[in-house]
Simulated scan of single mutants.
Amino acid sequence: MTFVDFEYFFYQLWGVVVDHIIPLIALLLMAILVPRLGRLAIKVIEDRLDEEEESTKARLALLGALIYVLQIVAYFILIVLALSNLGVPPLGAAVPATIASAAIGFGAQTIIGDFLAGFFIISERQFGVGDYVSFDGTATAIEGTVVALTLRATKVRTPSGEVVMIPNGSAGVVTNFSQDWSRAVVNFDVPVRSGENLDHIQKIIEDTSNSAVNDPSISEDVAGDIEILPATSLTAPTAAGQPWKVNFRILVVVNPAR
């Protein structure tokens, strides 16, 4: 009799393992794989895109948002399958889910605001992956290179190497230093020697500037013509024997963040 009871017990236990435990473990493993598959998909697509193209930044931002939404959908489907496996009908779980959703909604207004802000950031192409930006709406001014962008948050690596997560709803005023093109600005003082005039000095600056931008190490980043503004200020000597100095400002359009 005892042998029969054990046989029945193990039969029932095996049925529970096959019908519930193994499927739930499989669903758990799938849930663990979801973010890893998302990162793999982003990496594969990144390798196929040209980093030099301006449109690549917007595509990477849209890709990150799409992967984020697909992950949420995948988690929702896995949860529904797990509840169904445990015998909880979808309609039966609808009422408590609605109550929980309402409770979470009251406490998740900030998160919803982050999602909306992220949607507008991506749809308006305010900035994308690879842009160098600064955020003035945070507690302290943060600037750096955007390394990841989702609907909820932006990940920025600062010049000193730290990675900062910024909720999109808290970004505030954003300055993009590398969208489409940038402008290099050079200010310097030129000493005025005896017998020189501003026209002669400006001619020297023009020749020197043209020679500089034709240097092979930087010529590929120069995207426009040099613009030399007229003398912006005159600096008096601070000690006897020193010459007067004229301040000049040189502008040139260059590739983004260069």
Rank of each mutant, 00 (worst) to 15 (best):
G113T: 09
S134G: 12
V146H: 06
D131L: 00
I104T: 08
A94W: 10
Q126P: 05
F127T: 00
T150Q: 14
V146Y: 05
V133T: 07
G113D: 11
R125S: 11
Q126S: 08
T110H: 12
G144D: 12
A117N: 08
D114E: 09
T140P: 00
E143K: 00
A139H: 10
A108K: 12
F119K: 03
I121K: 01
I122M: 04
A103S: 13
T145I: 12
V129L: 08
Y132Q: 13
I111F: 14
F106W: 14
I104P: 01
G118V: 03
T140Q: 06
T145Y: 12
A139L: 14
A103Q: 09
T145G: 04
P96A: 01
I99D: 01
F127S: 00
G107H: 07
F115T: 03
V129K: 05
T150F: 11
A139K: 12
T138S: 12
Y132W: 15
E143L: 01
V95R: 03
A148F: 15
F115E: 07
D131P: 00
V129R: 08
S101P: 01
S134V: 00
F119E: 08
G130I: 04
L151D: 13
F120D: 08
I142Y: 04
A117G: 05
E124K: 11
F120V: 07
D131C: 01
V146I: 15
A102M: 14
S123G: 11
V133I: 10
F135D: 00
A97H: 02
Y132H: 12
F127V: 01
V147Q: 05
F120H: 10
A94H: 06
P96S: 02
T140C: 05
F115Q: 05
F106N: 10
G137R: 01
L151S: 14
A97P: 00
F120I: 05
A153M: 14
F135Q: 00
G107I: 03
P96L: 03
E124I: 02
V133M: 02
T98M: 11
A148M: 15
I99A: 02
A153H: 15
A139E: 13
A139V: 15
A102E: 09
L151E: 15
D114S: 09
G144R: 06
I99V: 03
F119I: 08
Q109D: 13
Q126R: 13
A103E: 07
Q126N: 06
A94T: 10
I111H: 09
A108L: 07
V129D: 13
G113A: 09
G137F: 02
A100N: 07
A97Q: 01
L149P: 04
E143P: 00
V147D: 03
E124W: 10
R152F: 15
F135A: 00
A117S: 14
G107K: 10
I121D: 02
V95P: 08
A148G: 15
V95H: 02
T98Y: 08
L149E: 12
T98D: 05
G113M: 07
A97K: 03
P96W: 04
D114A: 04
F119A: 09
Q109R: 09
G118Q: 05
G144L: 05
A141C: 13
A108M: 07
A139T: 10
R152N: 15
L116N: 09
Q126I: 07
I121E: 03
A141H: 15
G137L: 08
S101D: 03
L116D: 12
R152Q: 15
A108C: 07
L116T: 10
S101E: 06
I111T: 14
G128W: 04
D131E: 14
I142E: 05
G144M: 11
A102S: 13
V95D: 07
A139R: 13
